[in-house]
Design a binder for these strands. Structure first.
Length: 276
DNA sequence: ATGGTGGGGTTCCCA
């Protein structure tokens, strides 16, 4: 089973690029981030005509996630749990950043969690170094705690699951061409990385690190200043596998070629092959 | 220190 993740930066602007890549990559499932569309405006029929089941969790203008699957999906849920009072303004969190579904493999089911983790910039700190309540950085860290808690629930089931998407997180210095340029950024600050280590420490495998240990392997390059041409990138899109999924890991790669095509997203797809 | 680019939806927000 080939499963991919792709932050497309707007379905309207990326429908051709996404369609071309889907034809080339031939994935069974892809989780999408930043569809930047309400559900009603997502070009559902276009992808259904290509043989995909389409499940969206959109909102106006920003964020938005989706799952396209050639295999049957069950138990689709939208939104990260425990969002009550977790919005930036103290109201409930209504940002469309998370979707889960179960896909049937040859003989085992796999729970797939597709996520678009908050960027967290600008970093706004109190005098004592703690994040300012209600700031974007505070929202990011609290969202990561909720993600951790959801992962804990899934780990307890001891069944195959994975979390994939745009984590807006650089795990290690080796995951950036210029790590020093990111030290104060929400994507690489110590608090963000500590939360990521805590998430990983529950027993996840970073699939790319296992299957592709090459240097300078990135999933995002800024549109500005010719970043892609200089490979001035960062690795922030990840596939995290629980042990019962990692047992089936055959391959994990980044389709960096997609960034060189016409009208690309600033992210490229990453995928895993599982013998499920 | 600044500005560089892009998407979405309007005259500015987000990345």
């Amino acid at each position: 089973m080939k499963i991919a993740s792709f932050n497309i930066n707007g379905i309207k602007a990326r429908i051709d690029a996404l369609t071309d890549w889907l034809k080339e990559a031939d994935v069974d499932v892809v989780v999408l981030q930043e569809i930047k569309s309400v559900d009603e405006n997502f070009p559902r029929a276009h992808f259904e005509d290509m043989g995909y089941i389409v499940e969206t969790h959109g909102q106006k203008s920003f964020n938005g996630v989706a799952i396209l699957s050639k295999l049957p999906l069950e138990d689709v849920t939208r939104g990260l749990p425990n969002g009550a009072g977790m919005g930036r303004d103290g109201a409930d969190d209504i940002e469309a950043r998370y979707i889960e579904a179960t896909v049937m493999g040859k003989d085992k089911a796999l729970r797939i969690c597709g996520l678009y983790l908050p960027n967290g910039n600008p970093v706004d700190l109190n005098a004592d170094g703690t994040p300012v309540a209600g700031s974007k950085y505070d929202f990011k860290l609290k969202w990561m705690q909720r993600l951790h808690d959801r992962a804990a629930e899934l780990f307890a089931l001891e069944e195959p699951f994975l979390m994939a998407g745009d984590f807006n997180l650089i795990p290690q210095a080796e995951d950036a061409k210029r790590p020093d340029a990111w030290r104060k950024d929400a994507l690489f600050r110590p608090e963000s990385r500590e939360m990521f280590r805590k998430l990983m420490g529950q027993g996840f495998t970073d699939a790319l690190r296992v299957k592709n240990a090459a240097d300078e392997t990135y999933t995002f390059w800024d549109y500005q200043a010719g970043a892609f041409d200089r490979n001035d990138g960062i690795r922030i899109d990840h596939f995290l596998l629980c042990p019962q999924a990692a047992d089936h890991l055959q391959d994990c790669q980044i389709d960096a070629y997609a960034r060189a095509k016409a009208k690309p997203s600033d992210h490229v797809p990453i995928w895993v092959d599982l013998d499920l």
